[in-house]
């Protein structure tokens, strides 16, 4: 604040003396503008190299690319990979399973995306400030550890000789360890729960911030009208949070195909592979470790195009319903 006022008074005092220089500046402005551009040019080159230039890789999906050879030595196959995706029976069934997994995980994510809102609303009802900030601090913590560490935690607690199995055996609840990690039962549910453990607290922060911005007069007016605690929660707090929820929902929808591979890669093993492979992981599995660079590129290219379409769609929906775009 004080810096600002200093600068202001400086402005006033020196305004006369600086007028001449300013005129020179305006005269030079075209040159200066280009100089500014040159200063950010290195960064623009980085942007080009790592975001635009990689797009040239999409042409690999029209070739039969075999890594040691260069692209020019490889056969141009046109739309062969794309045709294979819809005509080869094993490929089709594999892809359908992968799409099913992707849709299931995304839908579960969207279905539970209201939970952070309730988390924030209920946390806001806690009056002990120390407890509140304690909860907030420690429930956001898991968001800041990597999925590798989450898996490490999962392994320490849920492996065959992990804490949970040992404990259940000690109290005589089970005879042989339950295979929490190396089995394919309830894979979707397990992934959802891990994801919630990691991100529920963090997801609520944006709603807590919105709650802090709600006009207190609304509550006061409601109190005078005799509204109780729950009525205020359901008729003031939650409606006030819905616009934020809507934005988050639209973002989730536009990222429908982008589950990422972080989480699924670490939890993946030969037992649960069938149900854990989402699109991103599938692309990695067939591209980097498996058979075909070109097929993987074809799939990820289709994925990108559908994603951009989804994003545009969500943008239109948002514009129509709220009058504001999300991007």
């Amino acid at each position: 604040m004080s810096e600002e006022s200093n600068a202001r008074s400086g402005h006033r005092n020196r305004a006369g003396a600086g007028a001449q220089e300013q005129a020179v500046h305006i005269g030079k402005s075209k040159f200066v503008g280009f100089k500014y551009f040159l200063w950010i040019l290195p960064f623009l080159i980085l942007v080009f190299l790592f975001s635009y230039f990689p797009l040239h890789g999409w042409i690999y999906s029209f070739y039969d690319y075999r890594p040691p050879r260069s692209l020019s030595q490889c056969e141009f196959v046109g739309l062969q990979w794309f045709k294979m995706l819809i005509s080869n029976p094993t490929q089709v069934s594999q892809l359908l399973q992968v799409l099913k997994n992707t849709f299931a995980m995304s839908l579960l994510g969207i279905a539970t995306s209201i939970l952070p809102l309730f988390f924030a609303v209920f946390l806001n009802e806690i009056k002990c400030r120390k407890f509140k900030s304690f909860v907030q601090t420690f429930t956001t913590l898991p968001n800041f550890i990597s999925w590798v560490l989450v898996f490490s935690v999962a392994f320490a607690l849920f492996s065959a000789n992990g804490m949970v199995n040992t404990f259940l055996q000690q109290i005589g609840f089970i005879d042989s360890p339950i295979r929490f990690l190396d089995s394919d039962s309830h894979t979707y549910l397990k992934m959802l729960l891990w994801n919630m453990w990691k991100s529920l607290g963090w997801g609520s922060i944006i709603y807590l911030a919105s709650i802090a911005g709600i006009d207190q007069e609304l509550y006061e007016a409601a109190s005078i009208d005799g509204a109780g605690r729950f009525q205020k929660m359901f008729y003031i707090t939650i409606p006030e949070l819905l616009p934020t929820f809507f934005v988050m929902l639209m973002m989730a929808v536009s990222n429908f195909l982008n589950n990422g591979m972080d989480q699924y890669f670490v939890f993946q093993n030969s037992f649960n592979k069938e149900h854990i492979q989402v699109l991103d992981l599938y692309v990695y599995n067939i591209g980097m470790t498996g058979s075909s660079y070109s097929l993987a590129t074809a799939i990820s290219m289709l994925k990108s195009i559908v994603s951009i379409a989804l994003l545009s769609l969500c943008n239109v929906v948002s514009k129509v319903t709220r009058g504001e775009t999300i991007v």
């Binding site: 942007v47 190299l49 790592f50 975001s51 635009y52 230039f53 990689p54 797009l55 040239h56 890789g57 999409w58 690999y60 982008n258 991103d280 692309v283 990695y284 591209g287 980097m288 660079y293 993987a296 590129t297 990820s300 290219m301 994925k303 990108s304 994603s307 951009i308 994003l311 991007v327």
Partner: peptide
């Protein structure tokens, strides 16, 4: 704009 698209894993690797 680069926030909204992604070349994908293999093109990135090749790049």
């Amino acid at each position: 704009v680069i926030m909204y698209f992604n070349a994908g894993l293999i093109p990135m690797f090749i790049t």
